[in-house]
Amino acid sequence: MNNNATSYAVEVEDLTVAYDMKPVLWDIDLKIPKGKLMAVVGPNGAGKTTLIKAMLGLLTPVSGAVHFTNESEDLRAFKNRIGYVPQSGSVDWDFPATVQDVVLMGCYGKLGWVKRPRKADMALAQQMLKKVGMLEYATRQISQLSGGQQQRVFLARALVQEADVYFMDEPFKGVDAQTEKAIVLLLKELKENGKTVVVVHHDLQTVADYFDWVTLINLCVVASGPVNEVFHEENLKKTYRSTGGLLRSVV
């Protein structure tokens, strides 16, 4: 049992989540091994965002639990080891702030209540902005960013968190091919540093290239495991079947 605790970064047990009466996630059991780059794949409305939010504790599940390794420590220390890249549409980009302000928010967790960011935090923010290729935009107002740039700002903010486990909700959405390559390199670098990265991904073509672990999801977990073992025609059909059925029933 102890052995398990060290080899899995996140363990999800019997997780059921519902917004209304109808559950959108049903009895999810999921083990995410440490140091993997994992894709979460599924059709629109499959519950990918919901799964990520539930794992982050942003939603209260109907039943079930989410465990992280060494989570016995106090809440803040443990939250500091979890990074989050939300879907970029989840905030109002007309908020009066600059790119740098937003990226700095990544270190707020480490700082805790009341304490302000220091020089070192600023430097870290600059460094991460450089990594995502947004350094020249540091002082720009966030309402003047394109969708792909917004995405990169959120990525930089998560990198500033210097977490062990990252959850990213569609970080490739609206990003051009070149930037996508750059981000993938970043993710692989995170992985090489022993981090666990969970990414909601829509492009089935690139799953095998980018990721080494994959979870197929549609209400339930259809399959989860190494890409070369579970990412095949049959499982994909199972995952996307219900939407296919839906489309047919509309026609």
Partner: peptide, 9 residues
């Protein structure tokens, strides 16, 4: 700005 992110922190 981002209450979900605040909570995740």
């Amino acid at each position: 700005f981002d209450s979900d992110f605040a909570q995740s922190l």
